[in-house]
């Protein structure tokens, strides 16, 4: 297959993505490859105790890499846990050694536990904050040393639950709000080095992040159902809708966009 992406919107950019084996992470990788980027694909590719839906596999990660290579772009794959800061640094350093540099990182890996407040445990809190918030920090911290000389773009995937008080997964909502604070502070610290830091806030997307009891929880509290409803007539959005926002933020079209909370949420946070 030939695919001329030499005039792509992110041609030649080298982008690291966590949680890249499937779902939104895969979608971001493929969309960026379509527009000419080379990808560093990171995923844990293993189950995590306490997460009650299956996580990705090594085969999933290889499939993402194959889809990237279909666009004649480089895909490096690394099995690593975003909770492990040393491992993330090693991944970033090795990828930069292979590719000659790095231009952007997308902190996309995340987990979701569900339950009403009184069923929420400290173990869930520690797990969710560790993966979603500290994991995003580890991703940024691993990437920043490679961006300070020429500038770059950090895209941290939050959620509509990073803007509104979405119930039944309090640790998740807190972690996604935390990503906003982290990103805004980093945006100020790193602006002088031309490193842009933005968050993306999707509404519900059909992906593998699907705890079986979520619908049951919501159904038990009809008074809270409207919190989950989109304003636009679309119950769910596609991963590609989020990827298009990521693409804009990685591209030079957004060279002066930093500190943005970029909602791709069908209006769920305004109604």
């Amino acid at each position: 297959m030939t695919n001329d992406n030499s005039s792509g919107r992110v041609h030649g950019k080298r982008v690291l993505i966590t949680g890249a084996a499937r779902g939104m992470g895969r979608s971001h990788a493929v969309r960026l490859a379509e527009e000419g980027a080379d990808l560093v694909l990171v995923d844990i590719c293993a189950p995590i105790p306490g997460v009650d839906y299956p996580l990705s596999t090594e085969a999933d990660l290889e499939e993402t890499a194959r889809l990237v290579r279909e666009h004649q772009r480089t895909a490096l794959t690394y099995i690593a846990d975003v909770r492990d800061s040393a491992a993330m640094k090693t991944v970033a350093d090795q990828a930069v050694f292979e590719l000659g540099g790095l231009d952007a990182a997308v902190a996309n890996a995340g987990v979701l536990t569900v339950g009403t407040w009184d069923a929420t445990t400290t173990e869930q809190w520690r797990l969710v904050l560790d993966v979603n918030l500290i994991g995003a920090w580890n991703t940024c911290a691993a990437a920043i040393p490679h961006l300070v000389e020429r500038g770059g773009s950090l895209v941290n995937i939050s959620s509509s639950a990073g803007i509104k008080g979405t119930p039944f997964h309090v640790p998740y909502t807190a972690s996604k709000h935390g990503i906003v604070g982290m990103s805004l502070a980093l945006a100020n610290e790193l602006a002088a080095q031309n490193i842009r830091v933005n968050t993306v806030h999707p509404t519900g997307v059909a992906t593998g992040m699907a705890p079986p009891s979520m619908h049951e929880q919501i159904a038990g509290r009809p008074d809270l159902v409207p919190i989950f409803l989109n304003a636009l007539p679309a119950p769910l959005i596609e991963p590609s809708d989020v990827s298009n926002a990521v693409l804009f933020l990685v591209s030079d079209e957004s060279r002066y966009v930093t500190g943005l909370e970029f909602k791709v949420d069908a209006g769920v946070t305004i109604r």
Partner: peptide, 10 residues
């Protein structure tokens, strides 16, 4: 590309 983007202060 922005078909589900509304209510945003950009």
């Amino acid at each position: 590309e922005g078909r589900y983007v509304t209510g945003v202060t950009f």
